[in-house]
Write a protein that binds this DNA or RNA. Sequence first.
DNA 1: AGTGGGATCTGT
DNA 2: CAGATCCCACTA
Length: 185
Amino acid sequence: MSASAQIIEAAWLSRPSPEVAPDLLGCWVVRQLPNGQLVRGLIVETEAYAPDDPACHAYRRKTQRNAVMFGPPGFAYIYRIYGIYHCFNVVTDVDGRASAVLIRALALPGQPMRAAAGPGKLCLALELETSLSGIPLTAASELWLEHRLETEALDLIQTTRIGLSQGVEIPWRWYIKAHPAVSKF
DNA sequence: AGTGGGATCTGT
DNA sequence: CAGATCCCACTA
């Protein structure tokens, strides 16, 4: 066995999303596709959504769509957007505090850099759709997270989020500096 | 029951 | 910068 990857546990995600979002950079999303193929993606861009955040889907009230955000950390929150794409979030913080981290961009080893650059495109690449919303992010699942292998500090940029009409001024987007897969805005 | 718009992306 | 295209959340 080579140095085995450490799976990210729910306890590690049980913090406010603005703390978890930068910590997820450099970590891995691992997806077992329906055909059995394993796809690994390096997280290079994230956004945090939290209670009292007008841009958060859970800002107003609990609904069927956002219910998983209100639950315990370590679950997938996946929703359809603009009728065509999906967005993948990692539910964070303690049970009852509706918050999540949106995974905005991945780098897929061996694939074009733009293949998973953007929340809609990464869901296409990993074949993530709404039926997977609410599944636990564990190795027994078809979707999980792994810690960074390297221990050197990453060069991170913190700035405002993208595509919102509310909460535009909250600086809760993070990305790996100069990474070619981050959103160009 | 009807409707406006959204945490997007592509091509013009 | 318009268009694709669906589901949700809000109004009535």
